[in-house]
């Protein structure tokens, strides 16, 4: 018999209906192989480990804080395992937390069963999957990351968040008036901020501020 190379999937969910029907739907096209399923119990870890799936689908009911430990243990024992979470709601914080824990898929229960299956296929194929709404959130979050304060710059150069933001604008060649309009500040406020920064960093002109920040590793 030839080696079965279909991606293997394990379902961890409290609801038996969910385990039964999802297993059936996932196996339908014969391109995925469901190697096991269980509810959360003291045996879950052993069951998952012995099935050694490539993909672990977890219903959010199985993932209260008490068993993030279980997920960590599973990840340690099966380092290449890919997690797909079925979340109860569109909670952006829970979503981010799940992504940080290494999930490659996040599906909310408002999704259809077919969307869940599509997400598992995407993850099996090396991709990541979440709803269009959460994708939009992820884009906004990633875009916002650059505007977040650079703590290194802050601690080394003593620049406030606002000042770091101004350096970004200066690097793009904006005038005080343009920066003021962009941030909805008075022009003299912008001028004062920049004067203070020049003094703080011992710079002689505004573009030197950008250079100094870049030397400190800021992405401005």
């Amino acid at each position: 018999m030839s080696h079965d190379s279909r991606p293997t999937v394990f379902l961890l969910a409290q609801n038996r209906l969910l385990r039964e029907v999802l297993s059936r739907i996932l196996s339908k096209k014969n391109d995925l192989q469901v190697v096991g399923s269980c509810a959360l119990s003291p045996d879950s870890f052993a069951q998952i480990l012995s099935a050694s799936p490539e993909i672990l689908v977890i219903d959010s009911f199985s993932t209260t804080l008490a068993n993030t430990e279980l997920i960590r243990e599973v990840q340690q024992s099966l380092p290449t395992i890919k997690l797909v979470m079925i979340g109860m709601e569109r909670d952006e914080r829970q979503f981010l937390e799940t992504v940080r824990r290494g999930a490659m898929g996040y599906i909310v229960k408002d999704a259809s069963a077919l969307e869940v299956v599509a997400a598992v296929r995407t993850v099996a194929g090396g991709g990541a999957a979440c709803s269009a709404e959460l994708t939009a959130f992820l884009f906004r979050f990633a875009a916002g990351q650059n505007q977040l304060p650079n703590f290194h710059v802050r601690s080394r150069l003593g620049l406030t968040i606002r000042e770091q933001q101004l350096v970004g604008f200066i690097s793009r060649g904006l005038t005080n008036k343009e920066i003021a309009a962009e941030l909805q500040l008075a022009e003299h406020t912008v001028r004062n901020h920049i004067h203070r920064m020049l003094r703080k960093l011992g710079a002689t002109h505004r573009l030197a501020l950008v250079d100094i920040c870049r030397m400190e590793g800021a992405t401005v």
Binding site: K109, D110, S112
Partner: peptide, 12 residues
Amino acid sequence: RPRLMRDLVLAT
């Protein structure tokens, strides 16, 4: 509700 659970019932 939610949709996923409804789908599972329908599939059944």
